[in-house]
Amino acid sequence: MTALCRFTLARLLHSQRYLPPVLLFLALVTVLTSSDSGPLTAVYGVCAGSMFLTSCWLTVSLVNLDEPQGRAIAVVSSGSARRLFAADALVALGICLLLTLFGLAYPLVAGHHTVQGVQLLVGAAAQLTAAATGIALGLVCSRPVVGRPGYSLLAALGSALVLPLVPRLPPLNPLLTLLAGRRPAAELVWPVGGLAVLAAGLAVAAVLVTDFVAARRE
């Protein structure tokens, strides 16, 4: 799996399709968190929302890299379509991990906040929760499921803009609601941690569902 992930990452870097979603995240975090002096958890909520949109776009771009014929060759080379989808998800998650570091650090440099370790923990968990949720959405909206790359990206980004607004729809809406509140960061550790576990489960389920639907379409 390590070699497959390296191969997938190399293909993504060569294609440069990672640039639009990554630049979107950097721009949103820079614009929306600069000179902020509010609660740090609320600022990290903004970063988490940005991460959700970015991870979804990044995953769709990654899965849609190849034409169907090229994807079929990659499936044969990797051993199974499920392994290839899993590699796509892991590569997207790895890039989101790097972006999380920026999302944690930039608000501290550009804003005015009193920093506690528990706030950083909650912020990291929130952004990774959003990343896993976006990856799950990106997988089920990718071309092996939807069929056409344009419709695939449109479905993914449209859903990414709407789903966070649906009241009580886990994990993203409850996550953003928690972070936007005035509760101390120490009280958010377990609720955010539970949502992170749920998001990880959704990402795993999305790999299985995407593999199943793609096999049926073939």
Results as ranks from 00 to 15, higher is better:
L153Q: 08
S35C: 03
L128S: 03
V109A: 12
Q116N: 10
L62C: 12
G201Y: 14
R217K: 15
P20K: 08
Y44V: 05
A185Y: 04
P164Y: 02
S61P: 04
L65R: 14
S15H: 11
P164E: 07
R148W: 02
T59A: 04
L108D: 03
A105D: 02
L188F: 13
P144T: 11
A203F: 08
G194D: 13
I135L: 08
S152V: 01
D211H: 12
A48C: 11
L188A: 10
I73T: 13
L65W: 04
A27F: 13
D88W: 01
L28N: 00
C5I: 07
E187Y: 07
G111V: 11
A199L: 09
A214D: 15
A200H: 10
G158V: 05
L90K: 09
I73E: 13
A186N: 12
A185R: 07
P174L: 11
V209M: 15
L104K: 06
V31H: 03
A87F: 02
A87E: 02
A81V: 04
L163A: 08
L161E: 01
P149W: 06
L58A: 06
L179M: 09
V63Y: 04
L13Q: 06
Y18E: 02
I135R: 09
V189P: 07
S37Y: 10
R216P: 00
L172W: 00
V122W: 05
A3S: 13
V197N: 07
L58C: 08
L169D: 00
V146S: 04
F102D: 03
V63S: 03
V63M: 07
S142R: 00
L98D: 02
R71V: 06
G38P: 00
A206N: 11
F25A: 01
R6A: 13
A3P: 01
A10Y: 03
V43H: 01
V91L: 08
T133R: 01
D88E: 10
Q127S: 06
L172K: 00
V197R: 06
T33V: 11
F52T: 10
T54C: 15
E218M: 10
R182M: 12
T210F: 11
A205V: 15
H113F: 14
S61F: 11
R11H: 08
D36T: 09
I135P: 11
L120H: 06
P39K: 11
P20S: 09
L65H: 12
L98R: 06
L202S: 09
T59G: 06
Q116F: 12
P20V: 08
S77Q: 15
V162H: 01
A130Y: 01
A42I: 05
